[in-house]
Design a protein around this nucleic acid. Sequence first.
RNA 1: CGAGGUAUAGCGCAGUUUGGUAGCGCGCUUGGUUCGGGACCAAGAGGCCGUGAGUUCGAAUCUCGCUACCUCGACCA
Length: 478
Amino acid sequence: MAKEKEFVKEIASITENFPQWYTDVVLKTELADYGPVKGTMVIRPYGYAIWELIQRQMDERFKATGHENAYFPMLIPYSYLTKEAEHVEGFAPEVAMVTKAGQNDLSEPLVIRPTSETIICEMYSRWVESYRDLPLLINQWANVVRWEKTTRPFLRTSEFLWQEGHTLHATAEEAQEETLKILYLYEEFARNVLAIPMFMGRKSEKEKFAGAQATYSIEAMMQDGKSLQSGTTHFFGTNFSAAFNIEYLDRDGKRKNPYQTSWGTSTRLIGAIIMAHGDSRGLCLPPRIAPIQAVIIPVAMHKAGVLEKCNEVYAALKGKLRIKLDDRDYSPGWKFNEYEMKGVPVRIEIGPRDIENGVATVARRDIEGAKIQVPLDDLCAQVEKLLDEIHDNMYNKALAFRDSHVKTVGNMDELKDAVDSGNFALAMWCGDEECENKVKELTNASTRNMPFDQTPCGDKCVCCGKKASKKIYFGKAY
RNA sequence: CGAGGUAUAGCGCAGUUUGGUAGCGCGCUUGGUUCGGGACCAAGAGGCCGUGAGUUCGAAUCUCGCUACCUCGACCA
């Protein structure tokens, strides 16, 4: 008993010190480690395996909607960045630059991409000539660098991995449709793969991407009540295509700028998984991105027949799900705790007693203490079913948590009260940036996004009290 | 980038006030006994005390510089 308490202390309390809990979980479960350069992180095999599963399943969805992958260079001439005025203003402060090659100064500084709009636009301007070249639907999996002041593993690192889609369309309507199509794709992915409910909506002018006409986001609620912007899609209109001279000859014989979108999600999604599902025992991974979906733990493995049976079961399940047999020389109890901390969804215990009864003892990570006996000849089917159940349960739990932490508010006192006690505030807003700034100043909460369902929850701006027609979420954000 | 704090074995810490050549717990290695919720015994390995200068017969300890990290603010996927 005393020992168990000691173990729990190894990870900070999720309720008492959430930031420390987060760091402890990242490091102790070996998702990532700090790199030697400020703000950089090493994604360790366990964390990278999650990223690969995210990549694979998201990439399938991009391909299914007609997108192709390509790769553009990491180094971008500085002059490209300056072609779109708002864009350079937004990114210049945090851009890393290469100015030397060996001992020689470069004739023009090179930007290490903070995002790839500029170089992709430059290339698109060479590739697009005719309406027949549209739409152009390209995605890139890449790393980007942004010199951030405050960094945290997965949530904000100087270098991070992401995907960025960049598309060109003949009409504004088609580009708008693409922008929303991907937003819905992101939401569906988060729901069905990550088991995280998202608030979808449009960003305010103040919060939108540098150079975009409209930005949309998916926002997830973390268990400390803060918001994590988990993916964004942007409608550019012709801002960039005009700045970069992307032109095509239309059917009517006129040269036109195509309409453009871009959209991205990053390794930040792993941070969302940690903070949306984790608990006092550590990680709790949604089955569809869990590198190990089920782990077999032999009990009393020195006794005759135990390891043999475990290997037999392992061979039967291998190839059907991501499974591991842990026959290391640690006690079963030690392993139970280890895999719970690492968030493995299902644990299969096989000991002499189980073998005698022709069953395995199966425990699920998402419900503490729930153990069932499953006949060995039906194990695979039952575990597969259980994984789906765990996914649904995790989603519903996250949804219930979120729904109980959204307060509809009508004035500043209520808003401050709501966000200070770990909630999102849903309120009416006049649309004025001044009010956004004032809310930020008084409560440290920012506007998250405006849901597509704009059914009013009042008629006055939560801040200035003037007539308001926009419904918007406020929350403290990562 | 502003304010505060920290830096000693893989991790967590003691030692610094009062200078005398480095210690504890966990982990790790080997052997043995164990194994149904973090087992036990025994024997081991492991440190230019963040870094550069200075004071001193002598520095983890005192002085100055630098760097990194943490917490809190302003900026951001």
